[in-house]
Design a binder for these strands. Structure first.
Lengths: 301, 301
DNA sequence: GGATCCCGATAGGTGGCGCCTATCGATATC
DNA sequence: GATATCGATAGGCGCCACCTATCGGGATCC
């Protein structure tokens, strides 16, 4: 049985006339007669009483009409829904963001994203790199914003902007007197985030260290880390976009003597069909941050 | 778009694997790949993300699945309903019966009909011949029980049984003393039903008359007519099946000297597809009344 | 790191079937 | 009895769903 057959059935039932129903369906009358006949054979039920002036639906036919209508309507709904989903820049877009980036980047880009991609329903999801990649591969996220450079054959992505690291010092710290700070100078009393944060590894690498101050002091969030620095527990490296939050916490910020930082990328599955949406989101973020990166570079210079 | 396409869509979405979905659908994997691809082109939407270990439904696809399921389910409902309607001796059967027959015949045949045709939902409808034929031609009735012999090219039917007329007399009437009564003897003071009842015309014809006693006295129902006879207003001819009701009303019944009566037929539209049901109903009624007719004939003889 | 396996896509060929036009048979109308 | 209308039938054509065979890519395994 076919949707076409059901449409023919509905047409004849409505018009009670094969010729007119055929015209309404855009086919010839013999076509309709044959198809209805086949449908009757298939169903084992006589659908129409021919011979009078009209082709009257039988009682059995009337009992089938509602189901037939429902089937045709549902099929139409598939088409209509598909039409509304056709725009790749529309629909839900679940974007994973690492915790050391999300609170500082998202406020900057929500506005431009809404403006540039009004039909895209952005759903941010905050987690650490490994968890984000797991969710991405499980199709629970559409794309992720990462600060690491690893590449995988099943994933692809593009760099969006470079985010410089800055030295974060307690106001009374000796290094706070300098214009710029060398990473190695921070190594002595640097504080880092807890395991799993990519920023932790990057900060340690920048300082040429592999271990940091006492494990008990490892902060589980950047906010906590900033509060610890402000309280004089030690120093740290923070990503540039967190500068505002750091200053609010009463921390002294100093550029590094040689540019050091991380590159933020947007990453999606290699076969992700909504790739245009991922690229568009990346483009909007990159454009919004272009000026920021340049001005920061200028300040550091 | 086709129901088959939707089934394929559902299969791939369920198995998340083209090969297994193909096996489940009973087609080859290339067939499924091509058809899904065509569906994607038609809808303008990518339905599955290929390339990983699994073929994962996209977000757009998931939004279509419910509609697709509804369409397939409705189509299945058409088939299932048709299967249950396949028996021509099942379903609603609207049977028109004339008023001078219905109250006396139906109690006799309801039982046998329920027993012989348990799946047939009999819906009796009582009205005069002309109205019944109108409703029959308008497909508002499936068959009618008539006492007239007219035939029409768009109708057909079979005789079921012959119903003798009997003379109905007030107890004190002079003719009540006789064993049998001649129709012509009744002519003097015969009462008849109102216009539209076929029994009216048949009674008048049997007596060789075309007019009857005063128009004001024309009874609108056989019950009223019997009451009028019992009250001494006059005589009448009644159909044999009403004998019981007549005697209950205190009327004297006498056979006619020469057999006179009417033939009850069941009539349906010439193109009525449920003809087997009409014939079966007729058969049950005829069989139930066979003994009656013979015994009546024996009584009259 | 080459061989192997698994996945979905592609190519080429074939049969079924839905569609057409032309025509018929039956029925209703004048 | 001639005409018009309706649905059924006949014959032919072209599309398309289906098959088998094969390909290309990616993961896995000695």
């Amino acid at each position: 049985m076919n949707l076409r057959d059901l449409r023919y059935l509905l047409a004849v039932a409505e018009h009670e006339h094969f010729g007119r129903a055929a015209r309404a369906c855009g086919v010839s009358q013999p076509t309709l007669s044959v198809q209805i006949r086949k449908l009757e054979d298939l169903l084992g039920v006589v659908l129409f009483e021919r011979g009078g002036k009209v082709a009257a639906p039988t009682a059995a036919c009337r009992q089938l009409l509602d189901h037939a209508r429902a089937a045709v309507a549902a099929a139409e709904a598939v088409l209509a829904t598909a039409r509304s989903l056709r725009d790749p820049l529309a629909g839900r877009f679940r974007l994973g963001v690492i915790p050391t980036l999300a609170p500082y980047l998202l406020p900057l880009v929500f506005g431009p994203l809404r403006e540039a991609l009004p039909a895209l329903e952005l759903e941010p999801w905050e987690d650490q790199t490994a968890a984000l990649l797991e969710r991405l591969r499980a199709h629970e996220l559409d794309a992720v914003l990462l600060a690491t450079d690893e590449t995988a054959p099943d994933l692809m992505g593009v760099p969006l902007f470079a985010e410089p690291f800055m030295a974060a010092l307690p106001p009374e710290h000796p290094l706070a007197a300098r214009e710029a700070v060398a990473e190695t100078d921070l190594a002595r009393d640097i504080l880092v985030l807890s395991d799993g944060h990519c920023l932790r590894d990057q900060a340690l690498e920048a300082c040429g260290q592999t271990t940091a101050l006492g494990a008990a002091l490892r902060a589980s969030s950047l906010t906590t880390l900033l509060n610890m620095v402000a309280a004089g527990y030690g120093t740290t490296l923070i990503p540039g976009l967190a500068a505002g939050a750091a200053q609010d916490a009463g921390i002294v910020l100093r550029p590094l003597t040689t540019w050091t930082g991380r590159t933020i990328r947007i990453v999606w599955r290699a076969h992700f069909p909504q790739r245009p949406a991922a690229e568009a989101v990346g483009e909007v973020i990159a454009r919004r941050l272009r000026g920021y990166t340049e001005s920061t570079a200028a300040t550091a210079a």
